[in-house]
Amino acid sequence: MSVIELKHVRKSFGTHEVISDVSFSVEPGEVVCIIGPSGSGKSTLLRCINGLETYQGGEIIVHGESVDATKPSIRHIRTRVSMVFQRFNLFPHRTALENVAEGPIYVKKERRAEVLARSRELLARVGLGAKMDAYPPQLSGGQQQRVAIARALGMNPDAILFDEPTSALDPELVGEVLSVMRSLADEGMTMVVVTHEMGFAREVADRVLFLDGGVLVEQGTPAEVLGRPQNARTQDFLRRVLPA
């Protein structure tokens, strides 16, 4: 069964349609990168999957459950599909460790001691074993984003959604975040990544989706979409973002 399945999804803000008839599915262990020009609806599409946005047509299904942001069932879906945000959105009044432990303790009601032990392991795994008691404002952007990834992992999710995870980072900090994401992919985590990092998409993605004007224009392996794009819009976009 697919972890995530989108069937003819539509979304509009007022009369302006931002997502038009998008269908795709994400299989267990798959890494799907969504690329496209800004304003193409990539982030909106991602936010629809865990109900941070509502959609007007079609259906999104996560592990057999239909996503409806207005129903209480959305909370259960959110515990299974974690999200990593462009601007990290860590809780500034809690330490790195508390940020990671928050969901498992207060939402999933797991035992505190076990959660804390696991959270420490997760922080060590993203290279922040020495920063457990630091508050987010004391950390660099790259460190904050790695805490955010640990927070997402702390929920033991079936999949993680990444919304332009490196776009708010200084260039020299991008690498440390991408390498954590790469190791997650290697361990078989199911990931949907909205990104402008074409190198990451090429090397890590199993499948690349090109979205333009809310339309899923082209999809395939990185070699297909990034190497031999068939559609003129994809070709045009790649010409502008890839170094010649």
Partner: peptide
């Protein structure tokens, strides 16, 4: 902040 909190199922 609200979105992050919602996204972990709160």
């Amino acid at each position: 902040q609200t979105e992050a909190a919602l996204s972990i199922g709160m």
